[in-house]
Design a protein around this nucleic acid. Structure first.
Length: 797
DNA sequence: ATGTACAAGATTTTT
DNA sequence: TCTTGTACAT
């Protein structure tokens, strides 16, 4: 085995050292107090930086890295390769790379900087054979994982209606997050479903046969490797003299074990995190890691950073207040020296489109003041919410970019093409083989595939191997033998091509000769042209990598959506994606019960889930430097059905003195003294519905006979969301129980009226229903003509 | 082996 | 409502 530790090579090339580094990097510590500064500047020993939002976590990390690379490089000949720096996203890693380069005045190469997964993969590739894989093992994405499990379950004849593969995969991945290999699951998981344990074992065996690893394996295999080969662990422990970890609160148990193992010898581990920003527990993250730090690493210094440099006092106060509704926090008092600034805006609107319009208008207003679009962001809870805003911004002609949307590498044609690449680079990649065996159509169908699977399972070989064996037999029909044999022959040829041609050329040949490009060229699909474009893009992308294996690893682990950031664009992304970022102006739409906090979070994890949602809200608000605008809609279309929604409880939890509630709807006061003109216009959406009357549904509970002007109406303009009715309504609607169950009675999704019904409206009088759209009705009134109204205002005729 | 028809389920968040 | 998967027919 080659010596896996490049560090030894380094020792022979001292010219690589950073002796030429400028002695004083830019002073990133200027804003810390003396004590904090000392702790951060002390480079040896364990250090935990507990930092609130916007207090300069990354800055501390950068400073420390710069100091290491500068001071230690000179005094103790520390080489970058002895540093292990873990960030949470690839984006953060890139940023760190740039920041450090900037601080030192020159780029740094060779250090172990990246996400847990990419670093673990890098380590694992060197020792793959020790844990039963070849070094070119393929990394399965979640899609492949589920497909593989499905195959196994088919073979085991397990009812997938009762036990969906996807769900079981979730259980298995959770075990992996906890660092439990199949053996250890049997020991330590008591109440778990025995079937899942069994499947886990079979799944793992199958992965090994296929020379594949899934995401969780990257870390898990490392742990196994360390356990079985202490001498290897020892060498890495000695190699990594300094370990730095960002976003420590979001590490899972496997990651924690991995870090702890590696940090054991030098103990120079520095972690940075904020327990209030733990938003990944659904992925197995364990906040306990950060709470346990001091006992894990005796003598650890703990620094709390509480001065916020990012947000204005109002924003900070609003976020701080919100997060106090959570229990069990470490607790921090964030403060700032910045000027007061604007209050947090809280806006209620009628429905989703109105919300998008509102945000659009605000953005335009900001732009007309000369503020660049890049300084603004729309942060949504879930991916599907981006669409509304995209549409709006398109019509307004405002440039935007969506981060984390449908990814390039997840597109149909790209996945197919990648399957070809995988088959060339990794001959035993069963899942890739299965994907393309009949794409383009080669007449290979279910029956043939089944025979292959059967054989592959019985003989414990990969699918391509099975095919290779079977085409020599009478098992398959001659036609099939020819088709599959031809394909396998092609792959052999393409693999040979790799030796004397560039991989770009090989990819082009493969796509060409396999008939894949032709398939799309002759396709009648409207999207075919676009797909061909994407394929071209893939070919050019692959050119940026040394070889197919590095390219594939990049695809599975890095998978970032490269976006040119040079242009001024409004950013649209999920709250999760926004972690660690900041913007001057932040829009936080969709703060409605069920959407945010998300219903499923509460259903599945009860109070814990709710608290995580609240932390997410906290993250959202604290992204804003100058202004945060929260908004919620009273009606939202889900599955193309109108549903009325309640403002999020988080809206209530924001402190009144730091927010400014603005209502789109309280135009005419209450009491119904509206001029008929307003009602007759197309502006029906601006109907002051709740000022007058709560949109009442049967499911709200029977008790509430109070209507109208309850709550805090004070004459004149009535605020959109008086706490009164929110509380009243909410208590009847959502009730999170400590055991994790939630009872949630959804508001009626569609109207109880249908076309032709005779109805009456308290202002418009009698009429007939002409059309129904969810709970919106179009009614021909006898006196005032056709109007659109909401059914809650309607009484049976 | 492929295409059609009907039914069921779907929309958290991501390395 | 739309998409996806399954059953059945060709």
């Amino acid at each position: 085995m080659d010596d896996p530790f490049e560090i030894d090579e380094f020792a022979a090339s001292p010219e690589m050292r950073l002796a030429d580094a400028p002695v004083s990097a830019p002073d990133y510590l200027a804003n810390l107090n003396a004590e904090q500064r000392e702790a951060v500047e002390t480079l040896d020993g364990p250090l935990l930086v507990l930092a609130g939002a916007g207090t300069g976590k990354t800055r501390v990390l950068t400073t420390r890295l710069a100091h290491l690379l500068q001071v230690k490089a000179q005094t103790e000949h520390l080489h970058p390769q002895q540093i292990l720096a873990v960030t949470f996203t690839n984006r953060a890693a890139k940023e760190m790379q740039e920041r450090v380069a900037h601080a030192l005045g020159h780029p740094v190469e060779g250090w172990w900087l990246g996400t847990f997964h990419s670093l673990a993969a890098r380590l694992l590739r060197r020792h793959a054979e020790l844990i039963g894989l070849q070094s070119n093992f393929s990394i399965l994405d979640s899609d492949d994982q589920v497909r593989l499990l499905k195959q196994i379950m088919d073979a085991e004849q397990i009812d997938q209606k009762k036990w969906p593969a996807k769900q079981l995969m979730g259980i298995i991945q959770r075990w992996k997050d906890k660092g439990l290999s199949p053996d250890r699951v049997n020991e330590s998981v008591e109440f778990a479903n025995g079937g899942a344990k069994y499947l886990y074992k079979v799944y793992q065996q199958r992965l090994s046969v296929l020379n594949a690893a899934d995401f969780g394996d990257l870390l898990l295999h490392c742990l196994t490797l360390f356990q079985k080969h202490p001498e290897i662990l020892r060498r890495y422990q000695e190699t990594f003299r300094y370990i730095l970890v960002d976003e420590y609160q979001d590490t899972n148990v496997a990651q924690y074990l991995w870090l702890r193992a590696l940090a054991m010898v030098h103990r120079n581990i520095c972690c940075v995190g904020d327990d209030d920003q733990a938003i990944y527990s659904w992925r197995g993250a364990e906040v306990g890691n950060i709470l346990r730090f001091e006992s894990d690493f005796p003598g650890a210094k703990v620094v709390k950073l509480e001065q916020n440099y990012r947000s204005t006092p109002h924003i900070l106060a609003a976020a701080s207040k919100l997060i106090t509704f959570n229990d069990g926090r470490l607790g921090k008092e964030l403060w700032t020296e910045l000027d007061t600034g604007e209050k947090v805006f809280v806006k209620g609107v009628w429905d989703g489109p109105a919300e998008a319009r509102l945000v659009g208008e605000d953005i335009e207003a900001l732009q007309s003041k000369g503020i660049g679009a890049a300084k603004m962001a729309i942060l949504v809870r879930a991916g599907f919410q981006t669409r509304e805003f995209e549409e709006r911004l398109i019509t307004l002609g405002i440039p935007y970019r969506v981060i984390g949307g449908p990814r390039f590498y997840e597109r149909h044609e790209i996945r197919d093409a990648l399957a070809y690449v995988r088959m060339v680079a990794q001959p035993d990649d069963s899942l890739a083989f299965e994907r393309i065996i009949n794409v383009p159509k080669r007449g290979v169908g279910k029956a043939t595939l089944q025979i292959l699977h059967q054989y592959s399972r019985d003989q414990s070989v990969s699918l391509p191997m099975a095919a290779r064996d079977l085409i020599g037999t009478e098992e398959l029909k001659p036609k099939m033998r020819q088709a599959i044999g031809g394909l396998l022959g092609d792959f052999t040829r393409w693999r040979e091509m790799l030796t004397n041609r560039s991989h770009v050329e090989v990819l082009e040949t493969v796509l060409d000769e396999s008939g894949y490009t032709d398939m799309w060229r002759t396709s009648k699909e409207i999207e075919a042209a676009g797909r061909l474009e994407n394929l071209k893009e893939l070919v050019s992308a692959i050119g940026e990598y040394e070889n197919l294996t590095t390219f594939l690893e990049h695809v599975s682990l890095v998978m970032e959506n490269e976006q040119n950031t040079d242009q001024e664009k409004v950013t649209i992304m999920t709250l999760h994606g926004a972690k660690g970022l900041e913007f001057d102006y932040v829009f936080l739409p969709g703060w409605e019960e069920g959407v945010f906090p998300h219903q499923r979070a509460m259903d599945e994890s009860g109070v814990k889930g709710l608290e995580e949602e609240r932390r997410l809200a906290y993250v959202g608000i604290t992204r804003a430097r100058k202004r945060a605008t929260v908004s919620y809609a009273a009606n939202r279309r889900i599955y193309n059905q109108w549903q009325s929604a309640l403002p999020s409880r988080f809206v209530d939890e924001l402190p009144d003195e730091h927010i400014e509630r603005i209502s789109d709807t309280g135009l005419g006061g209450h009491g119904g003294n509206h001029s008929p003109g307003a009602w007759g216009s197309d502006d029906w959406m601006k109907m002051p519905s709740w000022a007058d009357e709560t949109p009442r549904r049967d499911s709200y509970g029977s008790g509430g006979s109070k209507t109208g002007s309850g709550g805090s109406s004070t004459g004149g303009e009535r605020r959109f969301a008086s706490a009164g009715w929110q509380d009243r309504v909410r208590k009847n609607v959502i009730d999170v129980k400590p055991n994790g169950e939630t009872s949630y009675s959804t508001n009626s999704k569609s109207s109880k009226y249908k076309v032709g019904d005779a109805v009456r409206h308290r202002k418009f009088g009698p009429g007939t229903v002409r059309a129904v759209d969810g709970n919106k009705l179009e009614i021909d009134f006898e006196d005032v003509g056709t109007k659109k109204v909401v059914d809650s205002f309607i009484l049976p005729g």
